[in-house]
Design a protein around this nucleic acid. Structure first.
Length: 347
DNA sequence: GACGCGTGGTC
DNA sequence: TGACCAAGCGT
């Protein structure tokens, strides 16, 4: 594979020109009214960055606003009840992020008196904060020099320099970081980082990029070679498997019995219908399908008596489901159930 | 370095 | 409809 070094890239556009171009474009055309941009508060930045991991801006906005109302400060979040934390995150996915975020708040309170550290080595020790988020916190909260590499940056660099690096695996990440660090300025870091993300999200988009609006069009290798559609390079992924799942609905008594899922695996720490490995004795009620990032769930719902379990269980009235952290498809399922009909079923 | 981990939008 | 995609991280 042909490597593209920072020196190679610099021959296409210098670091100073690149930073100036991105910063000037961001000032005129970037996004400057997102909810988490209004105060540059380190807590707001941390909350938004964890929510935004693998999640689109539009999806995050209402969650971010509810979160700040319920947990307005590091201290409030650190002292919050874990079940309330999970309930506030429900539906956003990647639930480990919620636990990481609370653990992060607890660490900032315990180790740094509630003030977010600025040093890369210290930030990296915070739960849920990886290489990308270190840079994002430094740039957005402190306007400090910091490289970032995310999907937007990989796509933009991949096209700008027609890089042979694949973006949907970590194989070539170190080369992307090398280039990103080369192009990271020492001033205007907040606007520069925001500009990279804005360019990737609004111009250099995955599909139908609007190259006619791009400030880098004249130097973009892919555009000049009329091969923007061929970049960034990605590896063809294998088809994801389908797995069955059996969920138990107990109708003896009022409401529905929910069970807290283990801290590992899918839907960690959320409440859900008790799941069993094989089809239980009982009557099939309905089926549902759900697609995860790595497999498809073929869900079977059974009206049945419950198998024994060591995990916490609770009986919930249908009208009280709103305040409990439920997986999105389970919530949808329970909301659509005709309870009168279900209660008529005889085992 | 590979894999596990959600959900909703888009074409 | 299936496939792709999104401000990645932890193990």
């Amino acid at each position: 594979m042909q490597r593209v070094t920072p020196q190679d890239a610099n021959a296409v556009i210098s670091a100073d020109d690149f930073a100036q171009t991105v910063v000037n474009w961001q000032r005129q055309h970037g996004r400057n009214d997102l909810p988490w941009q209004q105060h540059n508060d380190p807590y707001h930045v941390l909350v938004s960055e964890l929510m935004l991991q693998q999640t689109q801006v539009k999806t995050v906005i209402p969650y971010f606003q509810r979160w700040l109302e319920q947990f307005p400060t590091f201290t409030a979040l650190a002292n919050a009840d874990e079940q309330e934390v999970m309930a506030c995150w429900q539906g956003l996915g990647y639930y480990r992020r919620a636990r990481n975020l609370q653990a992060a708040a607890q660490k900032v309170v315990a180790d740094y008196q509630g003030t977010m550290p600025q040093a890369m080595e210290e930030l990296r020790e915070i739960p849920g904060v990886g290489p990308y988020t270190v840079g994002a916190i430094r740039a957005f909260a402190f306007d400090a020099p910091a490289a970032i590499v995310d999907g937007n940056v990989k796509r933009l660099l991949g096209r700008l320099f027609t890089l042979p690096y694949v973006v949907n695996k970590s194989t070539h990440d170190k080369y992307f970081w090398e280039l990103s660090e080369h192009y990271t300025p020492t001033v205007n870091n907040r606007r520069f980082a925001q500009g990279l993300l804005d360019l990737g999200a609004t111009v250099c988009k995955p599909r139908q990029p609007t190259c006619e609006l791009c400030p880098l069009q004249k130097v973009c290798c892919a555009y000049q070679q009329d091969c923007v559609e061929d970049y960034p390079k990605r590896e063809v992924k294998a088809r994801i498997p389908t797995r069955p799942g059996h969920f138990c609905l107990d109708i003896n008594g009022q409401g529905v019995v929910l069970e807290q899922r283990p801290a590992d695996g899918i839907w960690p720490s959320l409440w859900s219908l008790p799941e069993c490995k094989e089809a239980p004795q009982g009557k099939p009620l309905t089926r549902f399908k759900h697609t995860f990032s790595h497999y498809k769930l073929d869900g079977h719902v059974w009206v049945t008596s419950l198998p024994p379990s060591d995990r916490p269980r609770r009986r919930i009235e249908p009208e009280h489901l709103a305040n409990i952290g439920l997986p999105a498809p389970i919530r949808k399922l329970l909301e659509q159930l005709n309870w009168d009909e279900v209660c008529q079923i005889q085992l």
